[in-house]
């Protein structure tokens, strides 16, 4: 029986990955799971399908290279690990061995954004910019823990590669009731309706955007929140629609460099389509090597925390048209 969760409860995205992969392993005999020594959540799959599980040890490049090799012969490999190392150490393998031949390799991992308090070596803050630049790559960033399972399932029928970004994945806020929204790769989710402005966001800070919308609602502000969990291909029509329906007032909030991630993707669509906005603000990580601190503290320090989100949204709403 499916377990249901209500908004605000905590769930571990990692455990969802573990369970989903074990289920998918039963359904697809060609599904492989590979990891560079980040296997704690993969135990169920490892123990059930030991001949389709590979832990290569500390060797991210080889892990992605092997996945590509497996995919050549019709296998569907999932590489699970930590994103700073999968997106950068193994980048050429991702680009040349996986994306170039357009192979169905799934790269899923944690530590997207200033999360986990590991310091700059352990924050993936450029990964979406990098991944979005790769031909054939589908790029996602997931905040709702249950959605991770759904995205993995949908990705099974994809021809090419997909990148799935999570935060730490140990304790994530459940954002949506199962079935509340249609979840489809390539389509944004209108997580909250509104007409005064739109906050576009993805990943772990969707919860923060919803909180900001709640706060602003107390002042009678109607703020739309769009969970743009697919950064590539981006939902262009939804961007155009929001420009029209929320008076051209946009805030983009993301736990990624403020330049190069979702804000840049949206700005590209606006420029390409000739859409003129009234106001546009981007909240994200400035170009610094951030130090230590808890997730929320770092967001506050670097100017994209809850208060900054509320303030930016107010400014955008107040802007002269």
């Amino acid at each position: 029986m499916p377990v249901t969760f209500t908004f605000g409860e905590m769930l571990s995205a990692r455990s969802v990955i573990g369970t989903t992969l074990a289920e998918l392993g039963a359904e697809h005999e060609n599904l492989w799971v590979l990891t560079p020594d980040i296997g704690a959540t993969l135990v169920e799959f490892r123990d059930t399908y030991p001949d389709r599980f590979l832990d290569v040890g500390l060797a991210e490049q080889v892990c992605v290279g092997i996945a590509a090799g497996l995919a050549y012969d019709g296998n569907i490999p999932v590489v699970s690990g930590m994103l700073p190392f999968l997106s950068m150490r193994a980048l050429e393998q991702v680009r040349t061995d996986v994306c170039y031949p357009n192979l169905p390799v799934k790269i899923i991992g944690t530590h997207g954004g200033l999360v986990g308090n590991g310091g700059s070596t352990h924050y993936a803050v450029e990964d979406l910019a990098i991944m979005c630049s790769l031909t054939n790559m589908t790029v996602t960033s997931i905040g709702d823990p249950l959605m991770v399972g759904e995205i993995l399932r949908q990705s099974m029928s994809m021809r090419g590669p997909i990148y799935i970004r999570l935060a730490v994945g140990k304790k994530d806020m459940v954002l949506y009731e199962p079935g509340e929204h249609e979840v489809r790769i390539g389509k944004g989710i209108v997580a909250r309706e509104g007409t005064d402005a739109t906050i576009f966001t993805h990943g772990t800070v969707v919860a923060q955007a919803l909180q900001a919308a709640d706060e602003l609602a107390k002042d009678g502000r109607s703020v739309r929140v769009v969970d743009m969990f697919t950064l590539k291909p981006i939902d262009e029509d939804l961007i155009a629609q929001c420009a029209e329906e929320t008076d051209g007032r946009f805030v983009v909030l993301e736990d990624h460099l403020a330049y190069g991630g979702l804000a840049s993707r949206i700005a590209d669509v606006l420029a390409d389509r000739g859409i003129h906005l009234t106001a546009f603000e981007r909240l994200g990580i400035p170009q610094v090597y951030a130090g230590f601190g808890e997730d929320e503290e770092l967001r506050d320090k670097h100017g994209y925390g809850l208060d900054a989100t509320i303030a930016a949204t107010r400014r955008v709403i107040a802007a002269q048209s």
Binding site: R89, N117, G119, S120, T121, Y289, G291, F292, G293, E294
Partner: peptide
């Protein structure tokens, strides 16, 4: 803690005396 020079992985920039920022 926030702004501490001491955390999970060593940072040469924040902590003089450390020769290299490592962790990866």
């Amino acid at each position: 803690k926030l702004d501490s020079a001491y955390g999970m992985h060593p940072c040469k920039v924040q902590l003089p005396g450390v020769e290299a920022s490592t962790g990866s």
